[in-house]
Amino acid sequence: MATGTALRKPRRRGAATSASRRMLSPDRLALPDYEYLAQRHVLTYMEDAVSQLLENREDISQYGIARFFTEYFNSVCQGTHILFREFSFIQATPHNRASFLRAFWRCFRTVGKNGDLLTMKEYHCLLQLLCPDFPLELTQKAARIVLMDDAMDCLMSFSDFLFAFQIQFYYSEFLESVAAIYQDLLTGKNPNTVIVPTSSSGQHRQRPALTETSALEGVEASLFYQYLENLCDRHKYSCPPPALVKEVLSNVQRLTFYGFLVALSKHHGINQALGALPDKGDLMHDPAMDEELERLMAQLPGLLTTPTSGTEGGCPRTSPRMGSPWKPLHHPRKVDAESDGSTEETEESET
């Protein structure tokens, strides 16, 4: 009954996410109770669960509160709790972000398998199928990592966009601080001010515009790392492992801001440390999920489609409603005896 039921039950026992394994780690016993609860964002999930309980209390009354909480926290552990939820929720915790990345990869992996190349706007439409209010700005920033100085309407492969999007989405607040440090170094200022991450605000600042000359020259990598090392030490939300950041910067003498982001997105160790996506070579291989997707597509024939088919301005005319982990999102559609069965009427009736 959880949101995304077809994605909810893994086929293999070893398919538990790295985030859920960390939740079950014996290391948790070494932390004070309050510190463990804060580190794992338990209160965030408790507040959301209670909110969902109150919102759907009439439906839940026939099943029982205990069963609801069991279903809810099972969906959290399995990573399906973020499907069709609002952006403020999917970016609220590192586990939510990793779960959303994994869901996006699994749902639209067929784009990569088919060799399709999509534009930034088309990838944004796919993101909106899973999160209807996903901000365009984050998609644009991810596309900029891939396209660099090319026009934003250029085509991108699924794997290129996915790994760039992973870095931009998961480390969003960290990258805002990095951009501020980079701009200060570029203009000869002392980077004393660091942007304080606000994970619950949903607001993302525009990156400072760089001149053509400064963008080509970049900054000294060793000096850049000194400030990033300090940033990683005090960054409370999420940042790449400092040792891996040092490894990225030790291979060059100077680099640009977007050169740094490209290096992060292509770094094998950073992808492994984040734990949301497989290695690039295994990106298109997920036999168990192929079976799940076949069942999902049979139930939701209009969900996994190419963004340009049946669209206006590159986006689908309809998007899934936001749902709770308790109520089923979709119900069998009744056939109108007087309908002529045209696609146009069907799409309009769903709007």
Rank of each mutant, 00 (worst) to 15 (best):
L210Q: 12
L283Y: 08
I270T: 04
K246V: 01
A2K: 09
A209G: 04
H204R: 15
P287M: 04
Q299P: 07
D48A: 09
M152N: 05
S309T: 11
R22C: 08
M152P: 00
L127S: 03
L43N: 06
R205L: 14
V335H: 08
I195C: 09
H235C: 03
G64E: 07
A15K: 09
Q206T: 10
L130A: 01
Q183H: 13
E229L: 14
H330K: 11
E212Y: 06
R144Q: 07
E350A: 11
P32E: 12
G202W: 10
T305W: 00
R317M: 00
S159M: 07
R205S: 14
L255A: 07
G314S: 05
T17M: 12
T70D: 13
C239I: 07
F73V: 05
P240F: 15
C131G: 02
P132A: 05
N96M: 06
V194S: 04
C154H: 14
L155P: 02
E347N: 09
G112S: 02
H124T: 00
F161H: 09
G218I: 06
F169P: 00
F174C: 05
P197M: 15
T44W: 05
M322T: 12
H81Y: 05
L31P: 01
L54S: 08
R317L: 00
H204A: 11
D286C: 06
R254W: 08
Y171R: 06
G341W: 06
A38E: 15
Q52R: 07
G269C: 11
A92N: 05
T70A: 07
W326P: 01
G310Y: 03
L329P: 07
Y237K: 04
D336Y: 07
L255R: 04
R97Y: 02
R254V: 09
Q128T: 01
K236A: 09
S349W: 02
S99Y: 06
P328H: 13
F69A: 02
R12F: 14
E348I: 03
Q272R: 15
T3R: 14
D116W: 12
A221D: 08
W326Y: 15
Y123K: 02
L244W: 10
Y72Q: 02
P325C: 15
R11N: 13
K141D: 01
R333I: 09
S75V: 06
F73W: 10
R295A: 12
K266S: 13
I65C: 05
W105V: 03
E47V: 12
H268Y: 11
A209E: 06
T3F: 12
Y182H: 12
L24E: 15
A221H: 07
L29V: 11
H81Q: 10
A15D: 13
D233Y: 08
T311C: 01
A19G: 06
H124S: 01
L186Q: 12
D290A: 02
R317P: 03
E338G: 11
S319V: 05
G281A: 09
V196Q: 13
R102H: 13
G275N: 09
F161G: 02
E229A: 14
P240S: 06
L127H: 04
L264V: 10
K121W: 01
E212V: 10
I90D: 01
M1K: 06
F257V: 05
S200A: 13
R40C: 09
R144P: 02
P242M: 04
K9A: 10
K113H: 01
Q272M: 11
